[in-house]
Design a protein around this nucleic acid. Structure first.
Lengths: 140, 140
DNA sequence: ACTTTAGTTGATAGTTTGTTTCAATAAGGA
DNA sequence: TCCTTATTGAAACAAACTATCAACTAAAGT
């Protein structure tokens, strides 16, 4: 609850009202949110909040690793707050709740093998798992 | 180069001209294509091809595992032809060329661990790696 | 605290992307 | 070949995202 301000400032960006609001909304969210939704929720805190700014702020937060784009099975992406360094997500298909987890060595081994085999130099990876959370399993 | 017809037929769908065209275009492509692009390329083979049909066909092919949605770092998804069973991709960030590979046990181990730790039941996963292919590395 | 200045904002308009509807068409079995 | 019904494509619509630009405000200097 404050680290993000330093990240913004260190990168030469300003800590503004709308940005605070977007970070706040993302921080509260348990489920990936679209830009539209973030804007509506944010207006409870700052009625003048504009949709355009939400888009811009999301791009910015993503660039700084403070938020991440989530790819759902059907229609694409919502956003979630992100702890830098945690790159991988586990999402519940029914309720949308998510957990971040650290990429284990398993993945590093896989990547190293692939680099050797293909000649590619890999520097980004996107791993997302979909399933049912314990609560949603119980409801069946 | 005909397996897809059987897959369609077995699932109760018809093998139509526009579908052939979309499959053909995807099969030739070395790079993820958007619906718009597929439509334009497809019109070389079938001038009447409609954009709406391309969207519908892509959804269908994805559902049957014959094509897959690819998530790029910036703006979302293009499509690629897909060999069923190969769920993972390695994409070159510069030229867009891609390789499919089989999810190794590394990933299965990771998933089993997570299920045990979180109580989630995982049944889908999305793994995508981004990097530079050998050709693009050489060009620098 | 006051001023300055450059990053930031938000309304409007525009573009791109995807969806709904529905009459016309064509695939595939009889 | 005929018949049934899935499938198609145009047009209209809806959603998602972007460009522009005058007004505003955060933050550094005085």
């Amino acid at each position: 609850m404050g680290g993000w301000k330093k990240v913004l400032a260190d990168a030469g960006y300003r800590v503004t009202r709308p940005r605070k609001v977007v970070v706040e909304v993302l921080g509260q969210a348990e489920v990936p949110l679209g830009a539209q939704e973030i804007c509506e929720l944010g207006r409870a805190l700052h009625p003048d909040l504009g949709l355009v700014t939400v888009y811009r702020t999301l791009d910015l937060l993503e660039e700084l690793g403070l938020a991440c784009r989530v790819h759902l099975n059907g229609g694409c992406h919502g956003y979630l707050a992100s702890v830098p360094g945690h790159r991988h997500r586990l999402l519940c298909e029914r309720c949308g709740r998510s957990i971040e987890f650290l990429g284990r060595n398993d993945l590093d081994v896989l990547i190293a093998n692939l680099e050797a085999k293909t000649g590619y130099r890999i520097h980004e990876h996107l791993l997302q798992l979909l399933g049912l959370c314990p609560e949603c399993q119980a409801q069946r």
